[in-house]
Simulated assay, not measured.
Amino acid sequence: MGVAAMAEPLTLKISSKRQITIPAKVYESAGFKDYALCTWTDKGMFLQPLDVDDEDVTVDILRYLIKEGYDGEELISHYKEMKKKVVSVKDKLNEAERDIAEGRVGAVDEMQERIRAKYGL
Rank of each mutant, 00 (worst) to 15 (best):
M1E: 14
G2F: 07
G2I: 02
G2E: 01
G2P: 13
V3F: 13
V3E: 10
A4W: 01
A5V: 06
M6W: 04
A7S: 11
E8Y: 08
E8I: 08
P9A: 04
T11G: 05
L12Y: 08
L12C: 01
K13P: 13
K13W: 07
K13M: 10
I14F: 03
S15I: 06
S16K: 13
S16C: 09
K17F: 12
R18T: 11
Q19I: 07
I20M: 12
A24K: 15
K25P: 07
Y27K: 05
Y27N: 08
S29D: 10
A30C: 10
D34K: 01
D34L: 06
Y35D: 03
A36Y: 02
A36V: 04
L37W: 10
C38Q: 05
T39D: 05
T39E: 08
W40C: 02
T41Q: 14
D42Y: 12
K43Q: 15
K43I: 05
M45R: 07
F46I: 06
F46Y: 15
L47E: 04
L47F: 05
L47W: 00
P49L: 02
P49D: 04
L50S: 03
L50G: 04
D51W: 09
D51S: 06
D53M: 09
D53G: 00
D54L: 04
D54N: 03
E55F: 00
D56P: 02
D56H: 04
V57S: 08
V57D: 06
V59E: 09
V59M: 04
D60F: 07
D60H: 13
I61R: 01
I61H: 09
R63N: 10
R63C: 08
L65G: 06
I66A: 00
K67T: 08
K67M: 03
E68M: 05
E68P: 02
E68L: 06
G69L: 00
G69A: 01
G72A: 07
G72H: 06
E73N: 12
E73I: 02
E74Q: 13
L75W: 06
L75K: 13
L75D: 12
I76L: 15
I76P: 08
S77E: 15
S77H: 05
H78E: 15
Y79F: 09
K80L: 01
E81A: 01
M82N: 11
M82S: 06
M82Y: 11
K83W: 12
K84R: 11
K85A: 10
V87C: 07
V87L: 05
S88K: 03
V89H: 02
V89R: 00
K90T: 08
L93P: 05
N94D: 10
N94Q: 09
N94T: 14
E95Y: 14
E97H: 03
E97N: 08
A101V: 15
A101K: 04
E102Q: 11
G103W: 08
R104W: 04
R104P: 06
V105W: 03
V105N: 05
G106F: 06
V108F: 15
E110A: 14
M111P: 12
Q112R: 07
E113D: 15
R114F: 13
I115W: 09
A117Q: 14
A117R: 11
K118I: 00
K118S: 00
L121D: 05
L121P: 12
